[in-house]
């Protein structure tokens, strides 16, 4: 049985200007110890997918319209608050994209760091502080014994991000949801954090959902990758297949946009046009207005996610028809 099974998740935002279908029918599974990468357009619903699993969608305006997220037999979207509390923050932990806004500016780092331990494990303060210190050192904060007593504003952006990572790992979760965990970090610290995540996976069998824009990080860490566009999954495959044989036109275009593969000084390849208005129902393929392979058919049929190789699924009508 998979550790996590998300089925037909739909999370909409009901705002003055309409209903935004931020996540619109997302399904996936995650095995114990597996690392799943989620990549895709900015605004495509990657963070909202994570928030939905963590029960952190602001309601209102947000609402989970349908779907289930079954973690080890418990549906996180429909369980009692008591059941949820026993899982979230302890067995499932999350690292947020905005590290500054998710730390309380008025509390010392030490207080925030050991809070999950005090709540979930009910261990004495002194022991919690010791564990907190060890975790800060593990994420590469030098002079941790002194710095643990600082306030968030006394840390650099990357140091705050590492505090968030330490907070998430301190309860030794079975599932870590990491939303852009290393974008604020330089490459040497990033390599160190990714190594720490890898070690925790090996030692504790921790599964990871990694949301990132850095395709280099994905290729080093993830077993499988899932590509999102406009609230839907358009392609999912094991990492090698996705990098060496991407099928969906959006995935191909995304790959072409990577700066390191393009000559310096040239204009970078970009995908023309803009992402669709999520407040308007999209009848066909959401990528159709920007896709260079679009035919009429694409605009009126929503392409289903279809298997095109072992474990490789994609949602493009023309790829499915063997035309591209």
């Amino acid at each position: 049985m998979p550790l996590l099974t998300v089925n037909d998740l739909r999370t909409y935002f009901h705002t003055r200007s309409g209903v935004y279908r931020a996540v619109d029918g997302v399904s996936f599974t995650l095995e114990r110890g597996e690392t799943l990468g989620i990549v895709g357009e900015s605004g495509s619903g990657k963070s909202v997918t994570c928030y939905s699993i963590m029960g952190l969608v602001p309601q209102p305006p947000g609402r989970i319209e349908s779907g289930t997220a079954i973690f080890d037999g418990v549906d996180l979207l429909h369980c009692t608050p008591r059941e949820a509390r026993a899982i979230r923050g302890k067995r499932v932990a999350m690292i947020f994209q905005d590290s500054m806004t998710s730390l309380n500016p008025y509390l010392r780092i030490s207080e925030q760091l050991i809070e999950p331990l005090l709540i979930h494990e009910k261990i004495p303060r002194a022991a919690a502080l010791k564990a907190g210190l060890a975790m800060l050192e593990a994420v590469g904060i030098n002079d941790a014994a002194r710095r643990i007593h600082y306030y968030p504003h006394e840390f650099s952006g990357g140091m705050r991000q590492r505090v968030m990572i330490a907070m998430a790992l301190i309860t030794k979760p079975e599932l870590l949801i990491a939303d852009e965990p290393t974008t604020a970090l330089d490459v040497t610290v990033q390599a160190q954090i990714l190594e720490l995540i890898r070690t925790m996976q090996r030692d504790l069998g921790m599964a990871v959902i990694l949301v990132t824009h850095d395709l280099g990080v994905v290729s080093g860490l993830c077993d499988r990758v899932q590509v999102m566009y406009a609230g839907r999954i358009v392609e999912t495959a094991d990492t090698r297949a996705l990098f060496y044989a991407p099928k969906h036109p959006y995935t191909r275009a995304l790959q072409r946009s990577i700066p390191s593969t393009q000559a310096k000084g040239t204009e970078l390849f970009t995908i023309p046009g803009m992402p669709p208005d999520l407040a308007k129902p999209i009848a066909g393929c959401a990528f159709a207005p920007r896709c260079s392979f679009t035919v009429d058919h694409c605009r009126d049929t929503n392409p289903p996610l279809t298997e095109c190789g072992p474990g490789h699924f994609q949602a493009c009508l023309r790829v499915q028809a063997g035309e591209i």
């Binding site: 590469g140 030098n142 490459v187 090698r240």
Partner: peptide
């Protein structure tokens, strides 16, 4: 330490691993 968007290269290449922590 720059990650490359290429799984085979990324998993086999050599990094200069910096010993010790960033200084204070």
């Amino acid at each position: 330490a720059i990650p490359t968007p290429n799984p085979d290269v990324e998993r086999t290449r050599q990094r200069i691993v910096l010993a010790g922590d960033p200084p204070s």
